[in-house]
Simulated assay, not measured.
Amino acid sequence: MSVYKRYFRITEGPMVDEIARLQDLRSDTADAFRVLGDQYGAEDVFTWPRTGAFAGFKFPKGSKPDEKLFRLMKKERLWIPRKTGAGKAIWPIIERLPQVAPVENALHLVGLTPNVPSLVHHGRWYSPQLWGFGSPINVWFVSVPWLDVDPAELAQYQIDRAAGTHYDGNFEHLSWSMPKDWFEVKEWQVLKESEELSKPAGDNLRE
């Protein structure tokens, strides 16, 4: 018995609406960070994917910011304001900007939790993943880690769980059921459609 992935295709419903809301919020936040970066000559501003928190400024190649204001984080190759001196005054501005959750958090609406163990098997953990294409395409894919278990054993677990006598993280996850507005598909279908949707519009035109 080994872990495998179930794949789902989603084009409408509450989760897609939540993804769109989060994308709009992240876009607004990115614009606000960009305005702040422009004040100091930054080429781009990065946020941490999982939290939406400020990660650092990127400055044009060959140029450096005022090192009295900023210090370089060598691992990320990004600059952040110093915590002391003149740089200290920049942090309250950054902290007032909103932190927007990643679109993966929309999975919470359907009983799935990204980036934390959903299944643990042979010392490894697995979690659901979300990816896809936003407006105007609005096609999203979800992979959900899965194990085949004896249906009778799962049914007994659900009875024991309801009675408050047993809890098992794997069986809890395997009690999840697909929302009615989702479609289960094969991995090859996901890969094929993802490749087609990733092509520039002109590549799909035929003479």
Rank of each mutant, 00 (worst) to 15 (best):
Gly37Tyr: 05
Leu112Phe: 13
Val144Thr: 09
Arg161Asp: 00
Gly52Arg: 10
Leu22Glu: 08
Arg50Trp: 02
Gly132Ala: 07
Asp150Thr: 00
Glu153Lys: 12
Pro114Gly: 09
Asp203Lys: 04
Gly164Glu: 01
Ala42Gly: 06
Gly85Phe: 02
Ser2Val: 06
Gly13Gln: 07
Arg71Gln: 11
Phe183Asp: 05
Arg71Ala: 10
Pro200Arg: 09
His122Gly: 05
Leu69Pro: 00
Val3Glu: 00
Pro200Lys: 10
Leu197Ile: 12
Val142Phe: 05
Pro145Ala: 08
Thr47Asn: 03
Lys74Tyr: 06
Ile137Met: 13
Leu174Asn: 03
Ile159Arg: 14
Glu195Gln: 09
Gly123Asp: 04
Met1Asp: 05
Val110Asp: 04
Asp181Pro: 03
Ser135Val: 12
Trp48Asp: 12
Phe54His: 10
Ala55Glu: 13
Pro136Leu: 07
Ile19Met: 08
Gln189Lys: 09
Asp44His: 13
Trp91Phe: 11
Phe57Thr: 01
Leu154His: 10
Val120Leu: 11
Leu22Ile: 15
Leu197Val: 12
Gly164Ile: 07
Phe141Pro: 01
Arg77Phe: 01
Lys58Arg: 15
Trp48Gln: 12
Leu112Asn: 02
His122Thr: 02
Phe8Lys: 10
Gly41Trp: 10
Glu18Ser: 11
Phe141Asn: 09
Leu191Arg: 15
Phe54Leu: 11
His108Cys: 00
Phe46Cys: 00
His173Pro: 09
